[in-house]
Amino acid sequence: MNRVKRTLAPYLLVLPGGLWLLLFFVVPMVTMFSLSLQQGDIINGYRFTGHWQNYLDAITDYRVQLIRSLVYGLITTVALIVMSFPVAYWIAFYGGRRKPTYLFLVLLPFFVSFVLRTISWRQILTDDGMLLHPLKEAGLLSPGFHILGTPYAVIFGLIYNFLPFMVLPIYVALERIDPRVVEAARDLYAAPMTVFRRVVFPLALPGVFAGVLMTFVPASSDYVNSGVLGSSSTTMIGQVVQAQALANSNYPMASALSFFLMAVLLTGVFAYARVLGTEDVMNAAAR
């Protein structure tokens, strides 16, 4: 009886989450994949015909938006690494007893809906808003200058919205570095910059890796920031999917786009892991 329980226990533990994933992740994925190969229209209904042409259409029609999304995602991710590292570093090494407070501050924006926050940035960045208006009054900017609707505004919004997702994993990785290891590097004649380059940064790489996963993928497929802060010239692939699915009811096209995007992102992530040497990264993370 006891042995039966012991062998069953792991499966029982997995069961609730597993069922949930099966129902709400695997089933929709399969449905969506089948949808991406269907033909027809909203009035007469869609029928599965193994229509791979959907993918070709998706790629040719929306090549610009696809590339733009990946470029925005990439810029956002690089900017996030550069901006988050000092913050995470400071909290991890100089936060002292206030560490929880600082982490809370990093997370504070999460208490307001992400769409609302983005809309409020729209108010701030608007041509006669609190940011540009005084600068224009002071003659520092030309009256025609605007940010809203440009790629800058969209990327700015992406960076703002995903910052905590980069700060937190880097912080966790830095926090786990034994301060004695840093001292050992100093003891072995490493100047502060060398300590960072040869010891602290390599040891924080698992955190950077996790942060990139958590930001590059959602940033590339985001549809809110471009919708709220951008214009037709900044349209990202997420918006296209949304429009095809909700406005045009072209479900096969929306599904094909989504699957293609997923394939591109997965390939990117695996290539990235390969280059970085995931095995090392994962091992280091598992320590």
Binding site: R180, V181, E183, A184, D187, Y189, V199, P202
Partner: peptide, 20 residues
């Protein structure tokens, strides 16, 4: 004089080897 400019070396209790 800073630690990295002193001609002494230390063996730490936890060894503090570079794990990477």
């Amino acid at each position: 004089v800073a630690a990295n400019k002193r001609d002494v070396n230390m063996v730490f209790q936890s060894y503090a080897l570079f794990p990477h």
